[in-house]
């Protein structure tokens, strides 16, 4: 695989002008013949040069419409913001909580717990994170707690994470597992099903 990385500072895309004098970018003898009955129109013209830069080549031609509907753009932005906000909150907790931060011998956020929580947040779609708030635990680990009145929690530590959710006698789950991205995602999916978030 050949990779190249290019930074294009903002500037107008300038096509390389052909060296030959008898080339033209625009047709001088265009005939437009509309075919309304067939819902088609045809342009036959004289063109002898295709001007393509890499930018042009992969720019959509149907630019009359937004890349997606407004509803989609708003929802995608919300998804992104939910994840972004929780990551910012995690960083604030990590940076701001010192020794004894709650006056009861609490310890700052532990490095490994922080990294595990970051992995968990990055692996979780914003639509799921919207249901949760992030809190520090006095022992330097992190806690995800539902925003609504659901009974559930996920505690992310240095090596393990533990979780519990209770919706009714026959709809509950709890456990403690070594932390991994997959294990976290699996537990979170189960919790969301139990709490009726999906």
């Amino acid at each position: 695989m050949n990779n190249s990385f290019e930074i294009l500072e903002p500037q107008a895309v300038i096509c390389q002008k052909p060296k030959s004098d008898n080339t033209s970018f625009y047709a001088s003898t265009v005939k437009r013949v509309p075919f309304v009955a067939a819902s088609l129109s045809v342009v036959m013209s004289m063109v002898s040069f295709d001007c393509y830069s890499l930018d042009d080549k992969y720019r959509p031609v149907f630019v009359g419409v937004e890349p997606a509907q407004d509803e989609l753009i708003v929802a995608l932005g919300d998804d992104y913001e939910a994840q972004s906000k929780m990551l910012r909150r995690l960083d604030v907790l990590k940076d701001s909580l010192g020794d004894n931060w709650n006056g009861e011998g609490d310890i700052p956020i532990e490095e490994k717990a922080y990294n595990n929580a970051k992995t968990a947040i990055l692996a979780t779609p914003g639509a799921m994170l919207k249901h949760w708030r992030l809190f520090p635990n006095p022992n330097g680990t992190l806690l995800l707690s539902p925003k609504n009145k659901s009974i559930a929690g996920i505690s992310i530590g240095n090596e393990d994470f533990s979780y519990a959710a209770l919706a009714s006698d026959d709809k509950q789950i709890s456990g403690k597992e070594p932390f991994s991205e997959q294990a976290f995602k699996s537990a979170l999916n189960q919790i969301h099903r139990i709490l009726g978030y999906v």
Binding site: A27, T29, K31, L40, S41, V42, V43, M44, S45
Partner: peptide
């Protein structure tokens, strides 16, 4: 209706 020198054709759907 074809231009005597045409060497390129574009067909666009109206709808």
């Amino acid at each position: 209706k074809v231009d005597a020198e045409a060497n390129h054709a574009e067909i666009n759907s109206d709808n």
